[in-house]
Simulated scan of single mutants.
Amino acid sequence: MTAARFLVVLDADSTLIRNEVIELLADEAGRRAEVQAATEAAMRGEVDFATSLRSRVAALEGVPVSAFERVRARIEPTPGVRELTAAVHDRGGVVGVVSGGFHEILDSVAPELGVDRWRANRLDVADGVLSGRVDGDIVDGAAKASSLQEWAAELGVDPRATIAIGDGANDLQMMAVAGLGIAFNAKPAVRAAASLVIGPQDLAEVIALLP
């Protein structure tokens, strides 16, 4: 495999896309307000991400798998995302996404937006409906950081040539191990820890920072 020049890793929800997928799924269960409040607390770092995710996924119990198609139809890519992924590829880089969200949505959304590799949680399904449990290990902040490091090693990318972009507390570890950590429309704790802060919701602003 040819070594990449650099690696850009993004969070998915509220970074790669404008939505929080778990809130769209919660709409299907009529529990959006409850799940939205829990999501915001987790992103601010007020509660442990894995614990929060399990409680939010429990609220999805009984949602049919047919809901995935409706949720995918509601996904809004973040402005500038296609321009950013194209610019990364033009410069010999690779785009990764590591998400506390779900493969069931990301598997169709990521390739459409020019993402080369991605990792996310999986939802447990029984008899065509969500069981309310996460299937397998949870992708939390530590998993995000290790994913960036593993991908960089696989691609032959110097850790200093990695860029991490995120908005929530579970992105902080990933941003800390990257050569450049960018807070994008981020919570206060994330803005304070980032190398750079980008405010306007346009990922094309990152292009000027690419090597």
Rank of each mutant, 00 (worst) to 15 (best):
T2G: 11
T2P: 11
T2S: 15
A3H: 13
A12H: 10
S14Q: 08
L24P: 04
L25D: 02
R31P: 04
R32M: 08
A33N: 07
T39G: 13
A50C: 13
R54F: 12
A59T: 08
A59D: 09
A59V: 02
S66F: 09
V71L: 06
A73M: 06
T85F: 03
R91I: 00
G92Y: 02
V95A: 04
S99R: 01
G100V: 08
F102G: 08
S108M: 11
D116Y: 00
R117G: 15
R119H: 15
A120K: 03
N121K: 01
R122P: 05
V125A: 05
G136M: 03
D137A: 14
D137L: 15
D140Q: 05
G141C: 06
L148R: 00
E150S: 14
A152W: 02
E154C: 01
G156R: 01
G156S: 03
P159S: 05
I165C: 10
G166K: 04
D167P: 03
D167W: 01
V177Y: 02
P188R: 03
A189Y: 06
A189Q: 13
R191K: 14
A192Y: 00
A194V: 00
L196Y: 08
P200E: 12
Q201V: 14
Q201I: 15
L203I: 02
L209D: 07
L209R: 13
L209V: 11
